[in-house]
Amino acid sequence: MSRNITLSIFRYNPNIPGDTPRMQDYKLEEYSGMTLFVALNEIREKQDPTLMFDFVCRAAICGSCAMLINGRPGLACKTLTKNLPSRFTLMPLPVFKLIGDLSVDTGTWFRNLQVRTESWIHTNKKFDPNALEVRMSNETAEAIYEPERCIECGCCVATCITANIREDFIGATGINRVSRFLIDPRDERTDREYFEVVGNEDGAFGCVGLMACDDYCPMEVPLQKQLALVRRKMAAAGLKLDLKGMKIS
């Protein structure tokens, strides 16, 4: 039943002068139901207290613990070691700034994304505390919830070759985020306004269609569907719109 496993973990702390990137091996005795959350904490508590990694909810809800597990991105908290070979590698996600070892700065990247794509409801209506909510069909609510389920773990960005080589590309998560507002009747943005945000190479038209994002999304957000939706809407908007007015004055 129990076997010995070896975790080959990427080590590098940019804040320690003289530290260099390397792979370090840790041996553990595996037991039934062991997740990478359990394994990494055991290593930190019993073998190496300097090992850096991020966990928050440990239930695949918060998106903190994404890393390259044997080369593929995934959430460490829900990865059972029994589904991995007896020796495997753990690497931090690419694209994002390295904080140390397996810990990367997704927070700053996603903050920039929200601001760049203006990911909030744009409306001219004033909130009236005495009025009833605006009616909406339950279907629409569920359609909005589908892309809204993204937990911003960064797996889609890390697996995307375009995002890896072009730092301005907003990735599947960014386009998906915009799609959530695009289908929300409460957002009053016009096609032109959306086009300004994602109707370009850094947005909807930058995707090459490799679909690693769709295949590796730990939340199974239907990324292909949402990406294509935004691409079609933006193409339709672009072909329809007379955008001469968009020149800078």
């Binding site: 593929r72 690419p94 697996t159 070759i161 890896n164 080589i165 690693a212």
Partner: peptide, 24 residues
């Protein structure tokens, strides 16, 4: 859209090998 610079080629190649993802 294909990686052109040597740096990009290297990144793309390394990632592709690591991912083992069919579509990539």
């Amino acid at each position: 859209r294909a990686p052109m610079r040597l740096r990009d080629l290297r990144i793309a190649w390394r990632l592709t090998k690591s991912l083992k993802h069919t579509d990539t």
